[in-house]
Simulated assay, not measured.
Amino acid sequence: KWVVFIIVSWPSVADLGFTIPAGLESELRLKSVQFFVTQRPWLDLYGKRVKPVAAFGSTSNKPYVDPALIHRCLPDELLFEVFARMSPYTLGRASCVCRKWRYTIRNPLFWRNACLKAWQQAGMVENYKIVQSRYDGSWRKMWLLRPRLRTDGLYVSRNTYIRAGVAEWKVTNPVHVVCYFRYMRFYPSGRFIYKNSSQKIKDVVKLMNFRASKGDCVFTGHYTLADDRVEAALMYPGLRPTVLRIRLRLRGTTAGANNRMDLLSLVTSGLDDNDVNAPEEDMLGVVEEWQDDETHNPDVPAISHKRGLTPFVFVPFEEVETSVLNLPVDKMDYFVPG
């Protein structure tokens, strides 16, 4: 067997018929030397295995070198304090950064504080019993699997209906697509804020607080959460006070999301003078044992509403300005005549 070597010689600059000035040629050589001499950190990783970073509080005695500069400059104690001031959803994003952060964020202390704050109505003793009996003592598992109402944004229900317009010259018969929203904001203390408006979410979010005036038509009420069922009630003040009773079912598109609420029933009933004098925080307790068709004011009959029961969608505060719910009707709805 024969081995044939083929040598290919590329023409030099002189063979091409023109010359390069001496100054430029020396500069080109200098750049070539700098390219091969320059230290390139990523080239040092070839053929080497980066050792995994030990978890925070690990009992392993094996020495390791942390390759990340932030971990060399930031002590573990300060890193723990930074994570302790993050919200649970921010912790979830931070755990995707690196292995050390993921192990550190799995510390039960972070998730215990989040769970006790989210279900503070149940009390500390009851929460400890639930985490031991249902979630194997894991606070993080309890946070992901137990239904809870989110307080870092608004629940929005977008409703539309068709209204016939006035015919013009018997040629056109216009129709109008009417769009309105139901907004709900929940607080861990058991109170919530409700508003029914045609305004977009980016304009309403600044009004959804306890400092809103009466002209903003923002109402406050009280709610309870039992498993995935939400019972809420609020009072519409006026000459004929009316109570609004809301029943909801909480669910999520993914585990721990809790970003959807199905509107099971929406009932309005009349109140008498004794009910009106009750404190606002006790309104849910006043109507707790009422039937759906029960009213305490003959002038205000009990009505179970069948329209406007579109499920609620959760929108975090940081996504209010960019939410698709701000789009106009002509970009989100269509109507087929016939």
Rank of each mutant, 00 (worst) to 15 (best):
W42F: 12
V65E: 06
D44R: 00
Y103V: 03
A14G: 12
R106L: 08
V13N: 14
G123R: 15
C115A: 12
S12L: 12
A118G: 01
R112E: 08
L78P: 02
E126S: 13
L28N: 14
C73A: 13
G17K: 03
F56L: 09
L30N: 13
L74F: 08
V13L: 14
P21Y: 10
G92T: 01
Y64D: 12
P63S: 03
G47A: 02
A84Q: 08
S26F: 08
K117M: 12
L91M: 04
T90L: 04
L69F: 10
A84C: 10
V65W: 12
G47V: 06
K62F: 08
Q34Y: 07
L45M: 04
V33W: 11
A114D: 01
A14R: 07
T38S: 10
Q120C: 09
L28P: 00
V50E: 13
W111Q: 02
V33F: 07
R29D: 13
V82I: 14
K51Q: 10
S95M: 06
P21D: 12
S12W: 01
R93V: 05
T90A: 09
I105Y: 01
D44F: 00
V97M: 03
E25H: 15
R49N: 15
R93S: 10
K100Q: 09
S58P: 11
W101C: 01
P67F: 00
T90I: 05
V97C: 07
C73Q: 12
Q121M: 13
P21G: 15
F80K: 02
Q121D: 11
C98F: 02
V13I: 15
T19R: 10
A94Y: 03
P41I: 04
P52M: 06
S95C: 06
R99G: 07
T19G: 14
L43P: 04
L116I: 09
L24Y: 08
Q120M: 11
R72A: 04
F110S: 02
F36S: 12
Q120G: 09
P75L: 00
K51A: 07
I20L: 15
Y64M: 06
C115H: 00
W119Y: 05
T19F: 14
F83N: 02
G123Y: 14
S95R: 03
I105V: 06
T38D: 14
D76T: 09
P67Q: 02
C96V: 05
N113M: 10
A122P: 01
F83E: 00
L78D: 06
N107M: 00
F18A: 14
Q120R: 00
S12Q: 12
H71Y: 05
R49L: 10
A84R: 12
V33N: 15
G92V: 02
P41D: 08
L69Q: 08
P75H: 03
C73K: 05
I70A: 09
S87N: 06
T90P: 01
V37H: 13
A54S: 11
Y64L: 11
P21W: 05
S87H: 06
I70K: 01
K100F: 08
V125E: 15
G92I: 02
Y89H: 03
P21K: 13
E81S: 11
S60V: 07
L79F: 06
T59N: 13
W111C: 03
A94Q: 01
V33A: 15
A55W: 00
T38E: 10
R85V: 04
C73E: 15
K31C: 11
Q39C: 09
R72P: 02
A118W: 00
M124I: 14
T59P: 04
